[in-house]
Every structure is written in C-alpha cells, then in structure tokens.
Design a protein around this nucleic acid. Structure first.
Length: 260
DNA sequence: ATGGTAGAGCATCTA
C-alpha cells in the first residue's frame, strides 16, 4: 500500500496540482488538510473520476480535512469521538481504508505562545489522544498523519535560534505531541531517516524560504507498531513544492509492505 | 526595514 499526506492550502486553488500529483504518484490512500472547503463544494466527483472514493469534513474558508481511497472507506468519523463536545473547527477525519485506521489531522497553529489559540492547540493534542484511545488500540493498524504544526526536535527547523519564543518548537507543544506518540505511535519519517537533518515539509511562501532551505518538518506520519513492521519507505515529495502555484507544504509519501 | 507571499474574500484575518 502507498499512502500520502498533504496540506494543500486550499483544495480549490490546488486542484490542478493535486490531480496531476495523484496521477504521478499513484497513492492508494491520501490524507488532505486545509481544504478550505464546505462539504457541499468538495470535488468528490472529480476524485471519483480518478478512481478515488472520498470523505470530507469541512467548514469552508478555513481548515477542512479529507481522505481519498482506492482501498475502500469505512467507519468514517468526523471530528473527535472522545465523548467530548464537538470541536469548534473541522480538523480531524478518521476512516478505515485497506485495513488501516487512518486519521487525517490539521492541528491548530497556536498563533503565539500564551494566545488562546495556543491553549486550544495544547488541549487539541489531548483530545487527539483521547480520540485514539476511544476508537482504536495500539496493536491495531493505525496511522495518524497530517499537519501537526510542531517540529519534534531542534533539527526539524532550519535555525532553532530564529524560533526563540515562537510556537511550533516550545516544550509544551513537543510534550503534547509526545503524549500522543506515547499512546503507541512512531514517527515514520524519523524512523526512515535517522539523525539526518535539514529535511523539511513546510516552507513559508515569503522571502524565498523554499529556495533558501529555510523550512520546518511539521507534517508527520505516525504509525502503530504493526504499521512500523510494514514500513518500506517514507519520503518528502519536494517536487510538489516547486513550479506553478504550489502549496506551502510538500506531501509525505509512504510505502507499506502488503498484508498486516 | 519586526520585513516577505499566498489564500480566504473584499477589509482584513490566517498562516
């Protein structure tokens, strides 16, 4: 199975790139974030024409997450299934595709340390762990992937000094991410690439950051132990960040061995 | 130079 995750930063603006990329990469399952669409305007028919079933949890204008699949989409959950109140934003959708329980997540940005949105971000991670505990077990085939808006280690940003006092690198954010991982998930990209640094998934549009190598590794694929056992390859598709009208995020592409 | 660009949607907000 080949699957991928991609923050497209508006599916409406990115649809030509996404369609060409699907044909080029040929993933079986795709988790998308920041569609910025309402469910009524999600292009399910266009994806169907490319062979993908799809589910979308959107609100329009901001946020919005989706899953595309050529391997079936069952037991779909919009938002958290942790017994708590509905999330104020559309930031997580969960479905079983090809025997793997996928969650496509768009973790809140946080905006600034101490901001209300920063507290929302930390609480959101707690709800994510509760959602996992309520809907699956660590011994299941589980993948949680998307834009986590946290760089797990200092090596995951282009210059840690440039982020002093900023979000995405603070200990509370990293601890909140670690508590999700402690449920029973492994960072598949880090597993693949060991201690290599300067490997990023996001580059700000401004100031030529992409071409200057000023990036951040904030998009992650987390897999349970049974998924780790099937891991063959995990890579950032930097080509998708080049050329005409790119997203500011590049996709992560993962190959799993058959079975599981 | 506390900068820069892109996408939402039409004045700013978000990232």
């Amino acid at each position: 199975m080949r699957f991928a995750t991609w923050n497209v930063n508006s599916l409406k603006a990115r649809m030509p790139r996404v369609e060409a990329w699907l044909a080029d990469i040929g993933p079986d399952v795709v988790c998308l974030q920041e569609t910025k669409l309402a469910d009524a305007t999600f292009p399910a028919l266009a994806f169907q024409a490319l062979g993908y079933d799809s589910v979308h949890h959107g609100q329009g204008q901001w946020n919005g997450v989706a899953i595309l699949s050529k391997a079936g989409i069952d037991d779909v959950v919009n938002g958290f299934a942790d017994g708590g109140p509905p999330d104020v934003d559309s930031r997580i959708i969960t479905a079983t595709c090809g025997g793997v329980r996928f969650s496509s997540v768009y973790v809140p940005n946080g905006r600034a340390v101490g901001h209300d949105h920063y507290q929302y971000k930390l609480a959101w991670f707690g709800r994510l762990r509760g959602h996992l505990a309520a809907t699956s077990q660590p011994g299941d085939q589980v993948v949680v992937c998307g834009d986590f808006n946290v760089a797990p280690e200092d090596r995951d940003v282009w210059d840690i000094a440039a982020f002093e006092g900023d979000t995405h690198v603070t200990p509370p954010e990293r601890e909140a991410l670690a508590e999700v991982e402690d449920w029973g998930l492994v960072d598949l990209f880090r597993r693949q690439w060991g201690d290599q640094d300067r490997l990023y998934t996001y580059w700000d549009y401004r100031a030529g950051d992409f071409h200057q190598g000023r990036g951040m590794r904030i998009d992650l694929v987390l897999g349970s132990a049974p998924v780790v056992d099937r891991l063959q390859w995990c890579v950032v598709d930097r080509n998708a960040r080049k050329g005409t009208l790119p997203s500011d995020h590049a996709p992560l592409v993962v190959d799993l061995a058959d079975g599981g």
